[in-house]
Amino acid sequence: MHRFANPARFLRIARPATGWTLWPGLVLSLAGFIGGLFFVPADYLQGDSFRILYLHAPAAWLGMAGWSGLAIAGIATLVWRHPLAALAGRAVAPVGALFAAICLASGSIWGRPTWGTWWEWDGRLTSMLVLFFLYLAYIALADAERARGPDSEGRIAAIFGLVGAVNLPIIHYSVIWWNTLHQGRSISIVEGRSSIDPSMLWPLGLTFVGLTLLFVAITLMRMRADIARIKLAMRLQRRAEAAR
């Protein structure tokens, strides 16, 4: 666990990993979007509007995966006092919030022609909006905690990240537990079942993997920038002390 606690060691892995995730991520996402927009047949009922799926579904997954990352970073902060975990949590939060927002916006745009409404307060839509608000709260809380000084080590934000994880199963199971306007899931990896025709499925795989790699790349870049910022502040402080 503490193998990566040393920022120098972390950076030795993070630096090449950024490039290894960024470029394949961009290429796969682009290929997936082009495939989804131009090479896949239109849906028998929804026509072309279904193509927003290739952005909407991966965005929903990343919105939720981002919070799972926050929660895991929270446990690492609380239990092992891992120095990079709080940093990772702060790096993930805005990225997760971005994808949650993309999920909400794309779903809304799809909902207008399909359902006949931009927004309805059903279980799935509401719990996803709650996730977005939780992200905003986490960002504000983590910033405030950091501004207060280094002694709390991001513990308050870590606890908030853990508590907020309660929402994740609610989002996932909302379409099963309650009658919702949102349809049930189309793909089950565990059961190996998909109600999306195979001819329309392949771009979804590309955008899923591509956007996930992009998510990782952006998070790594944010972590590296944060480490650089901390290093710079420390160096300036040392220089000021030496000059005195």
Partner: peptide, 17 residues
């Protein structure tokens, strides 16, 4: 007010026919 609900099936028109 009427809202249309969509199910979880996606397929090309020829296949639906």
């Amino acid at each position: 007010r009427i809202l249309a609900k969509h199910d979880e099936n996606y397929m090309p028109p020829e296949l639906a026919e």
